[in-house]
Computed example of a mutant assay.
Amino acid sequence: METSNNSSDYYEDYSVYDDFTTVSVKQEPSHDAKDVARILSVVVYSLTCLLGILGNGLVISIITFKMKKSINAIWFLNLAVADFLFNVFLPLNIAYTAMNYHWVFGAAMCKLNSFLLNLNLYSSVLLLTTISLDRCVSVVLPVWAQNHRTTTLACLICGVDWVLGVAMSSLSLVFRDTATHKGNVICFNNYTLSENQSDHPLGMMRHQTVNMVRFLIGFVIPITIITVCYMIIFVKLKRNRIAKSKKPFKIIVAIIVTFFLCWAPYHVLQVLETQHDQVSHVVLETGIPITTALAAASSCMNPILYVFMGQDFQKFKVTILSRLMNALSEGSTHSTLAQRSFSKMSSMTEKDTTLL
């Protein structure tokens, strides 16, 4: 995800390997629409930064100082670290957007900022997928999970997720660049790696390839795995008559819908951007900043879900700290379904299937 590109990602297409004069015949969004999208993005970024740093920082503190080492703690610590680092670098993007997409931090920081933001966001997606698979295995194969689900294995899997995140984010170090456009220094993706007009076809091919790979690996595959995992969990619980109410199913639906709503618009716009000559300039220039901010907002959602979906919110009789600790805890050990009473299994599965 390129959170610092916004409207500048397709400026690159026109100004770097296309004749910018051809854009004059395209419909330009009004300054009011552009300003509204920019201001809205700044507001969303700012709220995300504040809530994300506070929420994820609290989660990191709780797991580090208040909880014993467990598999759940490892999952959520890594997820909180990824989101926290993303939020820490959001002020650069807030400043960039507030200054009408004028990058004042230099070319090296342009590359590093984009790399770190992509690293943390891809790592978050991979970790969410990993947690979903872990939930599924714990419910479907409880005996195997109890014997093989170890903290050492969890640490190794988290390491793999971070390595994959680095690999998927490394292109930012290659293609991210700065250039002067209409008096502003923009931080953008220079897929041609030059200003040579003869490189236009190669640049377009790279652009389309990167965006499609990002769409598949960063969204389609994860959301498919997450959806399948929770559908399997729901079927398993219903078949064994473990779920006493529809609450676990509602929580599953809420988690999937939240993920989809945050990420789907961004990826759709990024795919459309590769065909910018066939898409209204208004849609891209006003839509990309807003959908990018919406995707960034996903980094502050998890602590909120931990607190308000870990238990019945209407029975708010414990502190935020206690609710977070309850949501992040390992919970009951995973044993065979036959060894559990109906009430105990209902309580355990409701907790264990609450979080992504």
Rank of each mutant, 00 (worst) to 15 (best):
T227Q: 01
D9K: 11
S41L: 02
I290N: 06
F219P: 08
L133T: 06
Y10F: 12
I186A: 01
L355S: 07
G310Y: 11
L77F: 15
F259L: 12
L117T: 04
K68S: 10
G310F: 10
N5S: 08
Y10H: 13
F84W: 11
N190K: 10
N72C: 12
T152G: 13
V140N: 03
R149F: 14
T21Q: 14
G57R: 10
I252E: 03
L90T: 15
I157W: 15
S4N: 10
L79D: 04
V185R: 14
T291R: 00
A295F: 08
A254P: 05
L90C: 10
V220M: 13
I288Y: 10
I304H: 03
P201W: 13
T353A: 06
I62L: 11
H207F: 07
G55F: 04
A108G: 00
I226F: 02
N211I: 03
A108V: 13
S172V: 01
N302H: 11
A107N: 11
R239Q: 13
S123I: 06
V25C: 14
H207K: 09
N240S: 09
S298Q: 08
A98V: 01
L128Q: 08
V42D: 12
V253Y: 11
T64R: 09
L164T: 12
N56V: 09
V163A: 11
R323N: 02
V42M: 14
V271L: 09
K247R: 02
M348Q: 14
C300F: 15
C155S: 13
A108Q: 11
N56L: 13
S70F: 09
V25M: 12
Y10A: 14
F308R: 02
L153D: 05
D83G: 09
T319W: 04
S7T: 08
V220S: 11
M204H: 10
D199C: 05
G55N: 02
D161M: 11
N120K: 05
V88A: 11
T319G: 03
C158D: 04
R149N: 02
G331I: 02
S299G: 01
M1V: 01
S172G: 00
H207S: 13
N147A: 12
S46Q: 02
